[in-house]
């Protein structure tokens, strides 16, 4: 897996890891079945993201995009943060291997979930996005399962 220097930097030295006491908004995407979960917490004051922390279960790309998105939006307004896309995060990391663009590039989604959660004024965890596992094509094959 050929990762850019920036990806490796954010993976080996991730920024803003952890949780926020009394977070204003919490977002989570992915699921453990697929091998990626991104959890982001924000502290908002006067529509500005004062603090942001993440916790991610996943590969280097998942960790690096999470770290990068926290760096990109810290100190920014909610409106600015809402405009950040998964693609923009990948670009800020000098790109990701093609196979990683879909499954491990969800950090902006997690951020947006946290903003929605803040706007709704709820404290709970946002809905977890599901349904990424492949279907098996039909064959003349019996798989015995006990």
């Amino acid at each position: 897996m050929a990762y850019s220097k920036k990806v490796m930097d954010h993976f080996m030295n991730p920024r803003n890891v952890g949780k926020i006491d009394q977070a204003s908004g919490v977002g989570e995407v992915g699921n453990p079945v697929c091998g990626d979960i991104m959890h982001i917490e924000i502290e908002v004051k006067d529509d500005i993201i004062n603090d942001i922390k993440f916790q991610t279960f996943g590969c280097a790309a998942a960790i690096a995009t999470s770290s990068m998105v926290t760096e990109m939006v810290k100190g920014k307004t909610l409106e600015e943060a809402e405009k950040i896309t998964n693609r923009a995060v990948a670009e800020a990391l000098d790109g990701l291997p093609p196979v990683k663009m879909h499954c491990s590039n969800l950090a902006a989604d997690a951020l947006h979930e946290a903003i929605i959660n803040y706007r709704q004024g709820q404290g709970g965890v946002a809905e977890v996005a599901k349904g990424c596992c492949q279907e098996q094509p039909e064959t003349n094959c019996v798989k015995i399962t006990e």
């Binding site: 697929c34 091998g35 990626d36 590969c59 790309a61 499954c103």
Partner: peptide, 28 residues
Amino acid sequence: EGESILLMLDSYGIMASSGSACTSGSLD
């Protein structure tokens, strides 16, 4: 997750492998 373990080990010069989705090339 396995790929993360592999890359960190590799940064110490230790080469191993994993059966995680990220190393199998699929989502499973």
